[in-house]
């Protein structure tokens, strides 16, 4: 049964990489079921992430947000700050797709705090870039400029000419 769980996970990832997102969801749902049977919270957390990602490409952003929230909850329980940061970043982007910019900002700010704590300059730059765009969408140009300037500063430091 444990091997079956891993096989479902690998199958889900293969469907995903082939662009078969509906099949990926079916496999990852089976993986999730088996992870829960075993009380394997790391595998459960991975299944939530993979399901969230697949729902993004199916255009089902509300479902994606639900799975990313479960990922975030488990990342906090497992005290995995890197995964917590990644979940917040995913949620910020998902709420941008849902055009809920207030929530998008909330999650991008959470991502920014953790990226700083982990000295992740690339993550910090991405958070600032995302925040600049979200504040622009809300018409808050002062904050948009503030984050665009920080994004520029970090991009220069990283030598990211693009």
């Amino acid at each position: 049964r444990a091997a079956q769980g891993r096989a479902y996970g690998n199958l889900g990832n293969t469907h995903y990489l082939l662009g078969n997102f509906q099949n990926a969801v079916v496999s990852h749902e089976q993986r999730l079921l088996i992870a829960k049977e075993f009380g394997d919270r790391s595998a459960e957390r991975r299944a939530y992430s993979n399901l969230g990602n697949a729902f993004i490409f199916l255009g089902e952003f509300e479902m994606a947000a639900e799975y990313y929230k479960r990922t975030l909850q488990l990342a906090r329980q497992l005290k995995d700050r890197a995964v917590e940061a990644q979940s917040c970043y995913s949620l910020g982007n998902t709420y941008t797709l849902l055009q809920d910019f207030e929530k998008a900002i909330d999650y991008h700010l959470k991502h920014l705090v953790i990226a700083k704590e982990l000295s992740d300059r690339v993550g910090e730059g991405r958070a600032c870039w995302s925040l600049g765009n979200a504040y622009t969408a809300l018409g808050n140009h002062d904050q948009a400029v503030h984050f665009a300037e920080r994004h520029l500063e970090i991009s220069r430091e990283l030598g990211d000419r693009n």
Binding site: N13, Y16, S90
Partner: peptide
């Protein structure tokens, strides 16, 4: 993204490009 200005979503587009090849492995 039809209702949004491209400038507002370039960061989302970049995230999705990365996401396309991102899987949590067993």
């Amino acid at each position: 993204f039809h209702r949004m200005n491209l400038m507002q979503v370039d960061s989302v587009q970049r995230w999705m490009d990365d996401l396309m090849v991102m899987t949590e492995c067993e």
